[in-house]
Design a protein around this nucleic acid. Structure first.
Lengths: 193, 193
DNA sequence: ACGGAAAGCGGACCGACGGTCCGCATTTTA
DNA sequence: TAAAATGCGGACCGTCGGTCCGCTTTCCGT
């Protein structure tokens, strides 16, 4: 194809930029406190290099997020139960949502940065469609459940990064407490007459 | 108290600014397209006046939102069933959520502007607490339902402005279709064993 | 009615940010 | 090793939210 492999220094700089951005987002209170100049400086690189490597701010955050999400996506795509594809639906739905919740708890800074990036993010990020489709088809396997499409959207909305941040932060909810509440809510949704 | 009533021109300008902002937000594709200078100019007023009247951008949007929300809040606080306080809980919960959904559909631009305003809005807007408390206590009146606190958060998340915008816009979901899906989802949540 | 004081007005101005540009350095290739 | 291709860096730009301060308008006691 028309693919050309990147130069060695370009690859090194790209990695350094990702690492620096990750570090800065993790260290700062709000994602807005991290400027593109900050990232470039922390990576020991010029701003031009940063923009050449990623295009714009949103793309940088997306790249970071995708890198961190990859292990989870692999576990879902080809891992063992209860996340992997062989799991019976009524068991997989809560497992998927719990996994997403834990991911957002573990990477709250990144998740917040991503959802606050574009105007109507996160719904224009391609991976949202993927997760929605996944959850939707899992819901379809639960007996006595109509309208899985909307339910999938609604359940994903319950683990949005800023809600999680609010509950875990301002409301002082602990990790396990939060997980239990989510599990209970999912149970309620799945329990049909 | 230490309250002083505002000067006449100040009141007039404030009203003109609110009207201009409402108009601009309604007319523009994304809330970011509306700058503070735009609002001031459309109201025929200097930027200083705008900032003197509202403090900052977030406060302006909040003031606008509060003004538009007021009829709904009155209907909930003192109106007739199924929204008003005299309604039995299992009937009031879906009514409340449907009302919020319709409000966001009717004022999508404002709602989007508000939720995209601060860093972790909408959870630092005071009216969120009010709605959550309302929904929470309504849920408490539904038999066979534990953990109403988290459920209230989750249900409110299902009617977040950007999700509504995504479903109604990019996914082409019609108003009634959306309302029906939400009603069905709420029914699922309320149906306990 | 009037005059001074308080309140409000407006737009030039500021600092910061995301993003661009282009002369120079480094790497790749023949 | 020389030429071509790719990448680098930081000065630079346009825009935005927000501030500031000299001037105007309104208010209120007399």
């Amino acid at each position: 194809m028309t693919e050309r492999k990147p130069r060695k220094d370009a690859a090194r700089n790209r990695a350094a930029l990702l690492a620096a951005a990750d570090d800065l987002f993790a260290r700062c209170e709000s994602p807005d406190d991290v400027t593109m100049s900050d990232v470039a400086a922390a990576a020991g690189v010029g701003k031009g290099t940063l923009f050449r490597a990623f295009g714009d701010r949103t793309a940088l955050i997306r790249a970071l997020y995708a890198a961190r999400l990859e292990p989870l996506e692999r576990a879902v795509a080809e891992g063992p139960p209860p996340l992997g594809p062989g799991t019976p639906a009524p068991e997989r739905v809560p497992a998927l949502l719990d996994a997403v919740l834990c991911f957002k708890l573990d990477h709250r800074h990144l998740a917040l940065a991503l959802e606050g990036a574009g105007a109507d993010s996160p719904y224009q990020a391609e991976h949202y469609e993927r997760w929605h489709g996944l959850l939707r088809s899992a819901l379809a396997g639960v007996p006595g459940l109509a309208d899985g499409d909307f339910a999938a959207h609604a359940l994903l909305a319950a683990v949005r990064a800023d809600l999680v941040e609010y509950l875990a932060g301002a409301r002082g909810m602990g990790r396990d407490e939060l997980r239990a509440h989510l599990a209970e809510f999912v149970r309620q949704v799945l329990a049909g007459p």
